[in-house]
Amino acid sequence: MLFRQLEYLVALSRERHFARAAQTCHVSQPALSEAIRKLEDELDVPLVRRGRKYEGLTQEGERIVVWAQRILADRDALKDEVGALRTGLSGRMRIGSVPTASGAVSLLTGPFCATHPLVTVEVMADLKSEDILRQVQRFEIDAGITYLRDDLPEGFRTVPLYEERYVLLTTAGNGLGHRPTATWADAAQLPLCLLTGTMQGRRTVDGLFAEAGLQPSPRVETDSVGTLFAHVRTGHWASVVPHAWLHVFGVPPGMRTVPLVEPSRTVPVGLVTSAREPGSVMARALTDLARRTDVAAALERVPGVR
């Protein structure tokens, strides 16, 4: 059995198409197919359901893919560990983030890159919370920044980073913009632009509206926090945004932010990594940095606001 065969099988599971899998592995389709056939012969089980086109993996194939991902992750971790012993940490670190927390990622990646100049960082900032957990579990990313739920499955390590809270983002001309606080009932009366209902951040917002006995009816929905700011800028909309994003955008001219109360709730956000040992050397280094970094205090420093 060769690592290459396992890589091909994982790629096929991910791409669900022989040609695309071959392209991502930089080989011809016949070469990839033949390598997987040899793996089937060696393991003496069918891995792929074949017809006129790819029809998915067999039940055995689904199980073997999990083992392949673990084996390949251990190989990469070993190579990174040896490299770190020789010349310091090097290679590529992959971080996934839910959109509402992506503004906080730079508070970790900046000092991480300064400490480890031979490492490049790839950030995927538009993932759903369940996608982050799945990709950490499958070793597709080294770490994730997401909501720390009480029902987080076993097999993960967490480092709390900050408490997410929400503010009403509106225009300076709106009377609510000059109040010290606004209620969720006040917000529900405005023409709202909110995140889409499939996102954890939106589900949290809906839960807070529900606590006040309300159900929001946004006219515009998006998967981008930046788009929320852009819509409010037009003067036609208001929005509910995570306070952490004010650290990125500040409070743009002509806009106001007002803390939301009744109810007043916070949601913990943190770093999530695999608990499997020995694990990724990248994840260990990022975890150590996260424990030393006061992300919550940094997010309170809003540009342009004393």
Rank of each mutant, 00 (worst) to 15 (best):
M1A: 14
F3D: 14
F3I: 03
E7N: 08
Y8L: 14
V10T: 13
L12C: 11
S13D: 15
R14I: 08
F18Q: 10
F18K: 01
A21N: 09
Q29N: 10
Q29W: 01
S33C: 12
A35H: 09
I36K: 01
L39R: 00
E42T: 15
L47V: 07
R50D: 04
K53F: 15
E55W: 03
E62H: 02
R63A: 08
I64A: 06
I64S: 05
V65L: 11
A73E: 05
A73C: 11
D76M: 07
V82C: 02
R92M: 03
S97R: 04
G103T: 03
T109M: 00
P111T: 04
C113P: 00
A114V: 10
V119E: 05
V119P: 10
V123E: 10
A125W: 00
K128M: 11
D131W: 08
I132D: 03
V136S: 04
Q137E: 15
F139C: 04
I145Q: 03
R149A: 14
R149L: 09
V159P: 01
G173K: 15
L176E: 12
H178W: 09
P180I: 06
P180C: 05
W184T: 12
A188R: 02
C193V: 15
L195A: 14
T196N: 04
G197S: 15
M199N: 00
R202C: 01
D206S: 14
L208K: 04
A212N: 04
L214V: 00
Q215C: 09
Q215E: 14
P218V: 03
P218N: 05
D223C: 08
V225T: 02
H231G: 00
G235A: 07
P242H: 08
H247G: 02
V248W: 01
V248R: 06
G250L: 03
P253K: 08
G254R: 03
M255W: 07
V258N: 10
P268H: 05
P268N: 07
P268Y: 06
V269T: 09
L271W: 00
T273L: 05
A275N: 08
A275Y: 04
R276D: 09
E277R: 12
G279H: 04
M282E: 05
L286E: 07
L289S: 11
A290F: 01
E300Q: 15
E300N: 13
R306Y: 05
